[in-house]
Design a protein around this nucleic acid. Structure first.
Lengths: 218, 218
DNA sequence: GATCATTTGTGATAAAATGATCAAAAATAT
DNA sequence: ATATTTTTGATCATTTTATCACAAATGATC
């Protein structure tokens, strides 16, 4: 192998990617407020970040600003949406029709940010066939067909921790590539599958480290 | 000021703190499975982290393991719970009694991990007075009294983005020190207030960067 | 049109986090 | 008893991330 022939493609740090959606969220807010131009400094103040950080993050993808002026809000929104590939609507499936599943399936804020829950699954026969808004809850056995039909790459797991790993396996078998897991458990998945987690207790326990101890009991 | 007199207290990196709850979550799982001893390597494999990382993180707080053996699961759980101050139950208040608020208030998984939702608030008169499990929804005006009564330092915001900043202000005025915000917005708060955020769309948009584009429309 | 105040994008620098290595200790096998 | 294996905690090296600082560009002001 000739190392000279290996192309050095500029690998963008994941930590940079993880900040882009935050930038986009705030830029959309500014846009909705009618703000036409902003600066890395203003954005930084809104987000609690340094202006240099924001400029450097954006510089990985191109030059979006104008010296002396700043950034055109609508243009930068558009560019970030393209970079993140959310200039479209992605189909998402949801497993788990408990309270949390209901809350997620009923949430109207996904669509305009690039996502739509297209199907809900549960293994409880009492829940299957029930409706959440316009979506009918299906049995988990229907997952593969629905994933294929919608070419769905993203799934949400909103089942109890005890069932989460098995559900994850079924989703991966069906072809899902990314999972957002609300179950308080770390999933074991192949390296090509991306999992992100939402567990409020993790955040609480992070907070309490910095708080003065103030307990009810125990 | 004499700089020699300034004690160099070992400041523990926040990124280390943020991993401890993950360790604890998995250790509790092992404990529940009857596992008595584990190693940094086993834990690392379960969590997708290097063993060195786990050992170094723990070394900030003391020596919890035994060479050649590893870590006693129950003991390490106990120590982590002390470090994170979750060897007790913290009162938490919740603002927002929509679908999400319902899901959070009904969730039974908080208590054994150190947290209890003690009150729910909403500004919608149609929701005030209603019951979620054993908790009666109160008007937001009652926040200060309840915070004082329970010495509550932690709050959850589960209201629409448009109301979140105002709710945050009310919570901070009432004495809350840490906020878990489910509204898709970055809050502006004084430097002594800690805010953490949960927004599934941020995770989705992070995922799509790495996926092959596959859209429904737009 | 010259001057001044802003603001970007970036190379250089500093700081932080991670990973590799290893002696010492403990348990197990021989 | 001795050798072997395992595993920690510490140190050192490397990589990654964040910050600094400034030339160049832009628009506003005089």
């Amino acid at each position: 192998m000739n190392h000279l022939s290996t192309p050095v493609l500029p690998q963008i740090p994941d930590i940079v990617i993880s900040r882009l959606p935050i930038y986009l969220r705030t830029l959309r807010l500014l846009k909705d407020q009618g703000v036409e131009v902003t600066s890395s400094q203003e954005l930084g103040e809104l987000l609690g970040l340094s202006s240099a950080q924001i400029r450097k993050d954006l510089s990985h993808f191109g030059e979006f600003g104008k010296q002396g002026t700043g950034y055109n809000v609508a243009y930068l929104c558009n560019q970030l949406e393209k970079i993140l590939k959310v200039d479209c609507v992605w189909p998402v499936i949801l497993v788990g029709a408990g309270y949390l599943g209901h809350a997620l399936a009923s949430y109207t804020g996904f669509e305009h940010r690039g996502f739509r829950i297209v199907a809900v699954f549960d293994n409880d026969p009492k829940k299957v066939g029930g409706a959440i808004g316009s979506i009918i809850v299906q049995p988990v056995e229907a997952i593969p067909a629905v994933v294929r039909q919608h070419r769905c790459q993203i799934a949400i797991i909103a089942v109890p921790a005890s069932a989460a790993q098995q559900v994850a396996n079924q989703l991966i078998d069906a072809g899902v590539k990314s999972i957002l897991c609300y179950a308080p458990i770390t999933l074991t998945v192949p390296p090509n599958i991306r999992v992100e987690y939402i567990d409020p207790v993790i955040h609480f326990q992070h907070m309490t480290f910095y708080l003065e101890k103030g307990c009810i009991e125990e």
